[in-house]
């Protein structure tokens, strides 16, 4: 049966099985490819999106669990105050390398700052340890979150 999804404020009716992960519905069915596939088992964080403002791993979120909720992806996170600050800090620090994990990193960082405007190093670790970066941008991710936290 079709599920009604609200993604970045737009409505989509998607006709897929309810247990299909949200990730693939976003990327393939709707065509928002900013959200990335990395592991499929919630180990790497590349697929992080916000559902009703909470960071979730879309690769293990069945689409049925996201129906009728507000879904926000990297393509629209800049419309939130935290998302905008995080993206600007990412540019100012020049965090990215290959860039593949960065959608997820930014989504996690935005969720962190929304709940915790002045995170300590330990606070940053506690949230960002869920996101893997093989290029090793971790030092700059930490610096960029601190910069974004300054306002």
């Amino acid at each position: 049966m079709p599920y009604n999804l609200t993604v970045n404020g737009k409505n989509y009716a998607v006709d897929v099985d309810g247990d299909i992960p949200l990730l693939w519905v976003l990327r393939d069915t709707i065509g928002l490819t900013g959200t990335k596939f990395g592991c499929g088992i919630a180990m790497c964080g590349a697929c992080t999106v916000h559902v009703d403002g909470q960071a979730v791993r879309s690769c293990v979120t069945p689409v049925v669990d996201a129906a009728a909720k507000q879904i926000t992806t990297i393509e629209a996170i800049g419309d939130t105050p935290e998302g905008k600050r995080v993206q600007q800090a990412w540019l100012d620090i020049d965090v990215v390398q290959c860039g593949y994990c960065q959608s997820g990193q930014i989504m996690s960082a935005a969720a962190l700052l929304a709940a915790n405007p002045k995170p300590s190093d330990d606070d940053i670790d506690a949230v960002m340890a869920g996101n893997i970066c093989r290029c090793g941008t971790y030092p700059r991710i930490r610096a960029a979150i601190k910069l974004a936290a300054q306002g």
Partner: peptide
Amino acid sequence: VRRLDSPEKVNGTAKFGIDAR
């Protein structure tokens, strides 16, 4: 110099091979 590929990698519009449609 700031990387020229940063903006699109920060806003989700960068296209990797896996994003080809």
